[in-house]
Amino acid sequence: MSRLALVLAVVLGTASGTAQALGEQKTTLSDISGQLVRGDMLCSDFEQEKHLRALARPLLSAGKLIFVVGQGVLWQVLTPYPARILVRSDELIRWDEDGNAHKSSAGKAPIFRALSSVFLATFKGHFEVLQDTFDLSATQAEGTWRLTLTPKDENLAAVITKVRVAGGRHVEEISVLEARGDQTLIRLRNPRVDGCKLNDTEKTYFAR
């Protein structure tokens, strides 16, 4: 069963490689940042697929996220088990069953650290931040850009092989390929800058 996930991962990997060979062109980071819609906040729904080789099927979850420049990303899983996490550039806050917040270094979850810096970088168009940690390569085809990030740090590379980010006016898809073959795919649905506001509860989460 786990072989299926592995095959899937490999196929996914080669698929994008083929796509590049077929028609995509190299592009520059400034081109990408030029396409992105800017704002102080981004609201979006998301779907997450976690493909673990050891499991027969992917773990599916969905929820919404809010990104606030300078404040971090609030991920709120709504199904199947409500959970909440706030990722800042250097720390990670988790809320437990009883609603107590637990802070830890973002470094504890390298994947989320990578995700968070990708968000920060793409949303603000500040790719230099990423270049500290990753080697970047970018391609472009028909209004859709793809960014491939390869970790420079040995320790991060031991966990993450590649991070792929794709989008047009917004980031639309992020996939993290782990060194051991597991993969996490996050799709943003209905990302919006206009009309994106924090409600009172969300404000208290960010105030942490």
Binding site: K50, G63, I85, E178, D182
Partner: peptide, 8 residues
Amino acid sequence: FGPGSSLS
């Protein structure tokens, strides 16, 4: 199923 887990 949660976000940010370090599952492998």
